[in-house]
Design a protein around this nucleic acid. Sequence first.
DNA 1: TTGAAAGCGCTAACAC
DNA 2: GTGTTAGCGCTTTCAA
Lengths: 340, 340
Amino acid sequence: MTNSSPATIEDVARIAEVSIATVSRAIHTPEKVANSTRLKVNQAIAITGYTTNAMARSLRLGRSNMILVVAPDIGDPNFSSILVGLENEARSHGYGVLIGHTQNEPQRGLEYLKFLNSNQAAGMILFTGILPFGHQSMTARLPPSVGVFEPVFNGGIPYVGVDDVAGARKAIDLLIAEGHRRIAFIGDSRTRLAFSRRREGYEEGLAAAGIPQSARIILEGDGTIESGRLALEQLFMRDTLPTAFMCVNDQTAIGVMLGLTARGYDIPRDFSVTGFDDVPQATFINPTLTTLRQPRTAIGRQAMALLLQLLANEHPDETEFLLMPDLIVRNSVSRPRSGK
Amino acid sequence: MTNSSPATIEDVARIAEVSIATVSRAIHTPEKVANSTRLKVNQAIAITGYTTNAMARSLRLGRSNMILVVAPDIGDPNFSSILVGLENEARSHGYGVLIGHTQNEPQRGLEYLKFLNSNQAAGMILFTGILPFGHQSMTARLPPSVGVFEPVFNGGIPYVGVDDVAGARKAIDLLIAEGHRRIAFIGDSRTRLAFSRRREGYEEGLAAAGIPQSARIILEGDGTIESGRLALEQLFMRDTLPTAFMCVNDQTAIGVMLGLTARGYDIPRDFSVTGFDDVPQATFINPTLTTLRQPRTAIGRQAMALLLQLLANEHPDETEFLLMPDLIVRNSVSRPRSGK
DNA sequence: TTGAAAGCGCTAACAC
DNA sequence: GTGTTAGCGCTTTCAA
């Protein structure tokens, strides 16, 4: 039990009465070390409380054992459970996870680019649909990277996400099965692929049910609560109201529900609402929200597994890995009021 | 513009036609380098796109430039804005921030302990009231550390938080000023100091208003939405109901409001409710929640500033740094119904 | 199966 | 004001 500065490989070697090379081998390639020697080394490690100095190791190896996870906003309710998957997978392969949040500011992104360039991370997981690094990203050498949720536009980077089209299809099919015909899609976006894919699912579902083009009601949004509210206001200025709102995500749905409630309507009696994501609030809002659950932990796990593959120089053929979201039926959907 | 492996200090030195020592000095102690030389070096850095290899630097210096932030749950709505303060302060002093989340599992804590022992972080910010490392933390050398929100019980670690007593006092004084006399405190906890301090503020306020001990209604909770609901159910099984609920935090308040609404009551007509923290949801819930705003960014900034002081071997006398929360008056409080 | 030694990229003491 | 050099702790040839 040394007490001053942390034990080094040399301390272990001295106590075990072997060379530092043997200690290193006993740790990383134990099969290349005689049983008796390995035992001595292990004892010495226990005595000293030795842990490998990751700096020195990374310097020597030319790569670190950290993965940088870049997210625009770690307050995002989706984020933390995905992180669990990411971390568990990384950890079980000897990697640590480092979280960078850019707050949607390119300036912050550049800091991380510097970080990457100084070799402090072996790979990168991106939570954003674009490389958050501005123009410099073009000239810089990026480490192996994997996107989560959305493809990374300017990178040719593989990604793991959810099958948005199929998921949206589940929602729209439910609404149609309940008898809805005039269903609005709230939250279309040209800049967010996930959102426009969900709109695709909406259109596919309507088409499959033989509902004419003219009955489609599509409003744009950016996925915030506020955008849901706003879209609702716009809708109420038209003459034909839908009987159901299929929202691009839960935040939007919450905005719509808040707006509807404020106008004195009852959900689901007067209007049905669906979301997408299954954020924690979905179970607390009144009525509880029917939505699609993102397989978050699985997404995280698979994204990290993919990155580790890349790091091992195995390049899979596919560039898009989609998992299936589950439809979670709660209380925000019912049959439309007869006559409407 | 080199293209293969990242430029090293040697590349820069060669191009600038100086020694590597001069390059290092030009970067870290520019005043010790002749203007003309510095210029050449800067040009060479620009040409090569050189960034210091943080691994090598840390190894040489014997300390890293990363600060580990350990949080039990990064999904906590308080967390991300505090992180902003932490990060900005750290970054402006050349430190990076690394986030570790323990998910309240001691096992995870141990991983971070190993991380610290391998010298990968120079210091630590703790978001939890206890060292999340189990028994081993006793024997291990911990780096300079600072707590956020709550003192760290088993460490003698200074912390930056909010003045919970004074904050709670603001809430209770408001309720009393509105005319409430029977006010319940929801969310007392023996294990969370911040919570019991808020209860202290509650008691102080009642005492100052001359409200007798017997009128105190105190229920326990763990600060979750569910705990708020639960406490409410318990209260409704008693015969004397309060006219106002002073909740230990916003989550609890939301639980109480949800429960009240579910029972058909109107807030604030039938009951007033206050929270603590000012989470984002406080503005979206209906009615909007009167609460105390944590000066989050300031807390983060100050905590990191304190840690940087420690890292510079300056040890302040105080061990507790409290900032004042602001009372944010919204719509969940009104005068009690006459006759109640 | 083990040891000696080179060297990853950097900083700082020392010499000039 | 600048260069030379030792060495941070580690992994990995190369020899034995």
